[in-house]
C-alpha cells in the first residue's frame, strides 16, 4: 500500500512544465548561437566588401596616376609591391568565409568574382609597370578548382603559399577556374588553358599542368634566383605567408 502511495507521489512530482521549460531554454540557447554565428558571418562579409572597395579605389587610383603621368616613381614601386599585401589579406579572409558559408554561397561567389577582377587588374597594371620601369617581376597565375574535381589543388596551394613566404617578391594570382566570370574566362582562353587542373602560368610562358612538389615548382621558376628571400631582409625565415585563395 505504502509502495503504491509513494509511486503515486512520484508521478505527481513529475513536473512536466519544468521539462518543457528546460526544452524551451535549450532551444533558445541554440537559436541564440545560430543568430550570433550568422551575425558574425555577415560582419565578415561586410569587412571583405569594405576591403574590396578600398582595393578597387587603390587600383583605380594607380591606373589613373599611370595614365596621367605616363610614368611613375619606379624605385618606390620596385621596393613596395603595389597592393599585394592587401590582396593577400583579402584572399585569406575570403578563404575563411568560403569555409564557413560554403563555396556555393551567393555572397561568397560574388565576392570571389570581385576579388578575381581585382587580381586581374593588379596583374595587368603590374605588367605595365614592369615594362615601364624595366623590372623583372615573377608572376604565377594559378588556376584551381574546389568543386571536388581537383584532389591536388589543395596541396598545390600549400606549395605556393610556402613559396610566397620564402620569396616575398613572388606574385601569385590564384583563380577559381569554375567561377562564372567572363574576364576570367577570357584570361583562361588567352592563355590557352585546356581545363586540366591545377594549372600554372609562370611569367607568361605556356601553361604547366598537374601537381608539382616544392622542388619541381622551384625548378620551373629559375627567375626565383633574382628575388630576395624572406631571410635576406629580416635575418630569420618567414616560414608561411598568408594563404592565398587557391583551394
Amino acid at each position: 500500500m505504502g509502495h503504491r502511495h509513494v509511486q503515486r507521489e512520484r508521478m505527481a512530482n513529475l513536473n512536466w512544465q519544468k521539462y518543457l521549460l528546460a526544452l524551451i531554454i535549450t532551444a533558445a540557447i541554440f537559436g541564440t548561437a545560430f543568430y550570433f554565428a550568422a551575425r558574425i558571418d555577415s560582419q565578415r562579409i561586410a569587412d571583405i566588401r569594405a576591403t574590396e572597395k578600398s582595393i578597387s579605389i587603390d587600383i583605380l587610383s594607380s591606373e589613373t596616376q599611370f595614365e596621367l603621368l605616363g610614368n611613375l616613381d619606379c624605385p618606390t614601386i620596385s621596393q613596395n609591391p603595389v597592393l599585394q599585401t592587401e590582396l593577400n589579406s583579402l584572399a585569406s579572409r575570403l578563404s575563411v568565409s568560403e569555409q564557413n558559408l560554403g563555396s556555393d554561397n551567393a555572397e561568397v561567389v560574388y565576392l570571389k568574382k570581385q576579388y578575381s577582377l581585382l587580381e586581374i587588374k593588379d596583374y595587368l597594371l603590374m605588367q605595365q609597370i614592369a615594362q615601364k620601369c624595366h623590372l623583372k617581376p615573377v608572376f604565377v597565375l594559378y588556376f584551381y578548382s574546389n568543386a571536388g574535381d581537383c584532389a591536388d589543388c589543395a596541396r598545390a596551394g600549400d606549395v605556393l603559399t610556402y613559396m610566397r613566404g620564402q620569396y616575398p617578391g613572388l606574385r601569385v594570382y590564384s583563380f577559381d577556374y569554375n567561377l562564372d566570370l567572363s574576364a576570367l574566362k577570357t584570361l583562361a582562353s588567352l592563355r590557352t588553358l585546356n581545363g586540366n587542373l591545377p594549372a600554372f602560368i609562370i611569367n607568361n610562358r605556356a601553361p604547366v599542368y598537374g601537381f608539382k612538389t616544392l622542388d619541381q615548382l622551384e625548378a620551373l621558376i629559375p627567375e626565383l634566383k633574382t628575388l630576395a628571400t624572406s631571410t635576406d631582409s629580416t635575418g630569420s625565415p618567414q616560414a608561411v605567408a598568408t594563404p592565398i585563395l587557391y583551394r
Partner: peptide
Amino acid sequence: DLWITRIPPHVPSLWH
C-alpha cells in the same frame, strides 16, 4: 601533405 609536397616542417605564421 608535407611528405608529398616536400615542404619542410614549419611553424604556422601568426597572421591570423
